[in-house]
Design a protein around this nucleic acid. Sequence first.
DNA 1: TCTGGGGTCCTAGGACCC
DNA 2: TCTGGGGTCCTAGGACCC
Length: 356
Amino acid sequence: MGRIIMHIDLDAFYASVEEREHSEYKGKPLIVGADPQEGRGRGVVATANYSAREFGVRSAMPISRAWKLCPQGIYVRPNFSLYVKTSHEIMSIVKKYSNKFEQISIDEIFLDVTDKVSDFEAAGKLAERIKKEILNKEKVTCSIGIGPNKLIAKLASDYKKPYGLTIVGFDDVKRFIDPLPVRKLIGIGPKTEDVLKGMKIETVEQLSKVEVKSLIDIFGVFGYRMHEMSLGIDESEVTEEGEIKSIGRETTFEEDVGTPEIVFAAIDELVDGFHEEIITSNIQFKTVSIKIRFENFETHTRAKTFEFHTSDKEIVRDTAKELVQSFLNIGRRVRLIGVRVSGLKFGEKQKTLREV
DNA sequence: TCTGGGGTCCTAGGACCC
DNA sequence: TCTGGGGTCCTAGGACCC
């Protein structure tokens, strides 16, 4: 009757792949991310292995802070193409076990195994098999969560890491989620957590006791989602995601720049970086947006929408520069610049100028 | 502590149309 | 003199996820 959903999460994925490729890293704290530059680097940590986590290093932490916590760590730049390749291989292993899957990111996938196993116990056996096959073939570990829906499966995979397996049957849902901090629920980040804390709500159980109406008053439609999640309810299907909505690139300068020419040159590079993908995927766009961040982290966006779809590189470049222009005449130093296209249309023959 | 880069989704206001 | 209601599209900002 009910569903049996599995969530597979690759453990410290980038770091695991690096450890596999470099046996000399094994057992040492390894940090994949920006160049720490002796503590002066301005990027963040992409992934830290479990040894580095013992020093307090975490994903998304400024690399300069990681350096202070763990100067003896090994710091490497990400090798994305290797991670993408490894991910593809692992995902095709997983997809053999059910044709109902949903890949969430490079290191996460849902599997609906309702029609493949008779009960949660059998699902656990299948999960053990998947874990071992991934470890044998790809030399990286994963953690798996099993539950009656995607929400519970995802929370379960996070419960025991690395190389964990957590099964939460239908009757265990309330006992499992009640004590969790609200921050674990998807969509509740630092800001929402703060607002809830102000309302004396820190656990899922406390959240479940708040009236839906007051949650909707404060958080809008998301308030309704919050209420459902607090009760462990999630009816969403495991289904492959639709088409991509936007494509872009952004870059943070090594040092904040004050010269418009450098910003323009960066725009050219960013556009070069993704325009090829637009052409090879036969994509057209109708909106160009830019993002600019000043040295004080103040961030602005500007967008321009055309009445037609196009894939013209000159249009992206010229529009981006035009949009960014108004921010460059005020003598402020720029930290980041980004370009993105949206309003996408796929796979159609390009319109000629005449048709436009 | 000082904040990447790839994205998605939501909100609110304004323009415009019927 | 004080001004509807519904809908769509666009823009800008912000929260969030991995």
